[in-house]
Write a protein that binds this DNA or RNA. Structure first.
Length: 385
DNA sequence: GAAACCCTAAGGCAATTTCT
DNA sequence: AGAAATTGCCTTAGGGTTTC
């Protein structure tokens, strides 16, 4: 109505625009189902920016225009996690998964449902919301203390700056998930780097980690990072991991759609091999899958062992392998006097990184005279030495 | 080029739990 | 009870990225 448009109060229009923009950001970045064209979206965004410029008093920190900016945090402050960000026990083959299943059923009985999710190759992130607003984002760090990367995470459009109140959730709650670099965006970035005569980035995971630790949030904002969330604490009314994923989705977070509820370890094996075949069809990298006992009651019964829960395991894909030649073997003396043999190799690219050195604690084969006999060392991927 | 992080993996060894 | 397996903790180390 033209009449309404003339008389519209800027304060009202600002709210309308924010609501519309949030809806379309959600459709585009979270659901991957845009409802309007980029141009239409841009028009809304420009209008909001204009109204806010005219009326700076109407600007609020959770406005879509305020994703980039705020105070330029000089350093990353340390933040202690409300509860430790644990790591997962790893399994590399069927026997280890069956052992896990056996342990689980030994503890909680045979009626077990598993929630299986793809294990995204990115970096873990923790988001704290207070009174419906994103208050803080932190990296995992050592699991207990991470770094405050709020200014950078705010620039990721699939991360809601505001959350509607929800029954069963307190004022302050935490969401955890993974930040990653979509492969298409990674390749685009590298084309841009090349065009600018700069060095390419080596792989999406490290680039994502680097992007999140930028001093200047404008750089992060230009990187097209994405997210998948998978944990909610406290868990509100939810009773299972499956429920949590649904709840997170309803709250507006991006949740991976390839999750499955599985009722036997055989189904887990099938899911695993299915994605082993199709992992390269995905628009992001995965390094396996995460299998969790779905029911929270059973999770509680199983409990934790120091650094990882007993009710979950990471079922990894067989590491990429490569062969190369050992050029020389050197021995290094550690701080405590420990001797470490290191093989210097002909550089070989495996798993997206170049490997030149490997320590030989594991793969090294020594004959009865203490002489190294392997002419070749089988390496897993970088770091897996 | 160095330092500080990120993520990952393995070895050594002691303590604890489980099995026979 | 004694042996075997598992767990927990710490150390060392690899490649990568960014900032200074």
């Amino acid at each position: 109505m033209s009449k309404r448009k003339k008389t519209v109060d800027p304060a009202v229009r600002v709210d309308e625009l924010r609501e519309l923009i949030r809806r379309h950001e959600h459709a585009y970045y979270v659901l991957d189902e845009p409802e309007i064209s980029d141009a239409e979206y841009d028009a809304l965004f420009i209008e909001l920016r204009q109204v806010e410029e005219a009326r700076p008093d109407l600007i609020s920190p959770d406005s879509p225009t305020q994703r980039v900016g705020g105070e330029a945090s000089d350093q990353f402050a340390k933040v202690r996690h409300r509860s430790p960000m644990l790591s997962l026990q790893n399994a590399f083959d069927e026997s280890e998964i069956r052992a896990f299943d056996k342990r689980v059923r030994g503890a909680v009985g045979d009626k077990v449902t598993y929630c299986a999710e793809l294990k995204i190759d990115g970096l873990a992130i923790s988001l704290t919301y207070a009174k419906g607003r994103l208050q803080r984002a932190a990296t995992r760090g050592d699991g207990t203390v991470g770094e405050d990367v709020t200014a950078n995470i705010r620039t990721i459009r699939s991360v809601p700056l505001t959350i509607e109140p929800r029954a069963g959730l307190p004022d302050v709650f935490e969401v955890r998930g993974e930040v990653y670099f979509p492969i298409v965006a990674f390749e685009k970035l590298n084309r841009e780097m090349e065009a600018a005569g700069k060095a390419r980035f080596v792989n999406p995971r490290n680039t994502a980690a680097g992007s999140v630790r930028q001093i200047d949030p404008n750089v992060t904002a230009s990187r097209d990072l994405q997210t998948f969330m998978y944990m909610l604490d406290p868990a509100g009314h939810t009773r299972s991991q499956w429920d949590v994923l649904s709840a997170l989705e309803q709250m507006g977070f991006r949740v991976n759609k390839h999750r499955r509820r599985l009722h036997s370890i055989e189904e887990v094996m099938e899911y695993h091999s299915e994605w082993q075949r199709h992992r390269h069809d995905l628009e992001y990298e995965i390094d396996g899958m995460v299998v969790k006992v779905d029911d929270f009651g059973q999770q509680l019964e199983l409990g934790f062992v120091a650094r990882s829960p007993r009710w979950a395991i990471a079922f990894k894909y067989a590491p990429e392998q490569a062969e190369t030649e050992v050029e020389e073997i050197a021995c290094y003396v550690g701080r405590t006097g420990v001797l470490t043999p290191v093989a210097h190799l002909k550089p070989v690219i495996v798993g997206g990184v170049t490997v030149r050195n490997v320590t030989m604690h594991n793969e090294a084969q020594v004959n009865e005279k203490g002489v190294y006999v392997g002419a070749r060392v089988v390496i897993h991927r970088a770091g897996d030495v």
